[in-house]
Design a protein around this nucleic acid. Structure first.
Length: 170
DNA sequence: CCCTGATTCGC
DNA sequence: GCGAATCAGG
């Protein structure tokens, strides 16, 4: 695939919408997230408004010394003195927990295209193009684009409520 | 381990 | 210009 005008346009759009590179890559198809990121940079679109969060990495030449896998195991001395106490307590206020019981998934996450990866349920909800259109977004099964619930819906019955009832009754 | 973007550089 | 490999971080 090449960067046609249309694809670049879509790339820009999705990037501006805040989608991740991998998501955009998936949306475009035929490209990897690296390709997307590379293009983003070439277009000078990096940054995306996001403040300096993960920048500041130290660049180091890797051409001279390929060092494929820096597995040199540099055993320095006095490792015991490296008491790097990094206790970070994070009190989870627990805002809106969703139990998500097995097979019971009436409420979908409000995922548009964000966070949709190969491991998130891509069950479409609503009409495409509609403002309410989104995806389930729950954890998908292995080798399946859908979560447990929607996988069942997709491959068996056409009425989700039957399965829900079934699950509820045992 | 999952993911994110950033950078380098051979092609 | 392109993007895989790599890097740095959450």
């Amino acid at each position: 695939m090449s960067w046609t005008d249309e694809r670049v346009d879509l790339l820009k759009k999705l990037w501006q919408e805040g989608l991740s590179a991998s998501q955009i890559a998936g949306e475009l198809g035929g490209v990897t997230r690296n390709a997307v990121i590379g293009k983003i940079h070439r277009l000078g679109l990096s940054g995306r408004g996001q403040p300096t969060s993960t920048i500041k990495r130290a660049r180091r030449p890797r051409n001279s010394a390929p060092v494929r896998q820096q597995r040199q195991t540099v055993t320095v001395g006095a490792t015991a003195l490296q008491a790097e106490v990094e206790v970070e307590m994070e009190v989870e206020q627990e805002t809106e927990l969703q139990p998500v019981h097995a097979l019971v998934m009436p409420i979908s996450r409000r995922l548009t295209i964000e966070k949709l990866t190969e491991r998130t349920c891509k069950w479409p909800i609503g009409d495409p193009g509609d403002e309410d259109f989104h995806f389930c977004g729950c954890d998908s099964l292995e080798s399946s684009p859908y979560c447990e619930y929607h996988a069942g819906v997709a491959y068996q019955t056409s009425d989700p409520r039957r399965r829900m009832k079934r699950a509820a009754n045992g």
